[in-house]
Simulated assay, not measured.
Amino acid sequence: MTLVSVIIPAYNSSAYIGQTLESVLGQTHSPVEIIVVDDGSNDDTVTKANFYKDQGVLVLSNPKKGACAARNFGYLHSKGEFIQFLDSDDPLAPNKIENQLNQLLSLSNYQKKLVHCRWGRFQKNKDEVYYWGPDAAIRQDLKPIDWLVANQMSMTGCWLLHRSLIETAGLWDESLKRNQDGEFFSRIMLHADEVLFCDTAKVYYRSGNTGSISNTKSRPAMESLLKSLYLIEEYMLQLEVSPRVNLSLANRYQDFAYSNFIANPDLAALAESKTIELGGSELKLPGGAVLCSLATLLGWKNALKIKRLLSRST
């Protein structure tokens, strides 16, 4: 049977790690190798993870080096032909790995393909999913550049991929604090010939976790996010140079400029210069009707300045 390694970085995850591990232990595919890498938790994450040692869960320590370093550390200790990276608070549906693996193994040259799946956003109870992704644009088998141009949200736990793709593309970028998965899987796609979609495989995405990396908006996190966009631009332009690629990239940079104009205007200016260099964006300023009307009349920068003034006065 095909061994799949599931690598789970964990930091202060005691509230969730048990549910996540049980979801992996309950997979309909076997064998599954489960590796938890603790990043220096100061709660009882390690104790709760060690509870499952008798069921074959390997618990390692790689403290205070970050989630990407934990994933790399776990990967280097793994033996599986296929790899599933999973965040410590995101459980899998029981047949997630089996269905994706069967889809891959049914194809020739499966080592050069990676497979994505459905993800359901929930807060406390995974049986109460209030949004199912991904967007329809990537709910199909696609060439890597088509998947990247679509520029739709994904998440780490959605993917299953062959070990050889990681060996070729390289490990996770440990310098990144935001959008690590976006950068990593974009780089993986440089060496893949197809991105598959498995509609019958599901992972549950926990929202509202204030400790989540995706919620980090500090200055270092925003610098890291911008760096990831520079890298993704490099990868996409290696795959295709075209107006549609430029527009997709420009929309990413413009979104960054919108969200950082107030807090990090210098970073927003760098992103805006990239938007202009790439030929401009079609992305409208996100917000309610009043904000959008202000942006139309006065420009998006003035609209955001007015919004800040009004928020200060209330």
Rank of each mutant, 00 (worst) to 15 (best):
Thr2Phe: 01
Ile7Val: 10
Gln19Ser: 06
Gln19Thr: 05
Thr20Tyr: 08
Glu22Ile: 02
Leu25Met: 03
Gly26Asp: 07
Gln27Ile: 07
Thr28Ser: 15
Ile34Val: 14
Asn50Pro: 05
Tyr52Lys: 03
Lys53Asn: 13
Gln55Asp: 13
Asn62Leu: 04
Asn62Asp: 14
Gly66Ala: 12
Cys68Tyr: 12
Ala70Glu: 15
Phe73Met: 14
Gly74Glu: 12
Leu86Ile: 03
Ser88His: 13
Ser88Lys: 06
Asp89Met: 00
Asp90Phe: 00
Asn99Leu: 13
Asn99Met: 13
Gln100Cys: 08
Asn109Met: 07
His116Ala: 09
Lys124Glu: 07
Asp135Ile: 01
Asp135Tyr: 05
Asp135Thr: 00
Ala137Asn: 12
Ile138Met: 11
Ile145Asn: 04
Trp147Met: 14
Trp147Gln: 12
Arg163His: 01
Leu165Ala: 05
Ser175Lys: 15
Arg178Gln: 13
Met189Cys: 07
His191Val: 03
Ala201Ser: 14
Asn215Trp: 06
Ser218Thr: 15
Ala221Glu: 15
Glu223Val: 04
Ser224Met: 10
Leu229Thr: 04
Ile232Cys: 07
Ser242Glu: 01
Gln254His: 14
Phe261Ala: 09
Pro265Gln: 02
Pro265His: 06
Ser273Ile: 06
Leu278Lys: 00
Ser281Asn: 13
Leu298Ile: 10
Ile306Phe: 06
Thr314Ala: 08
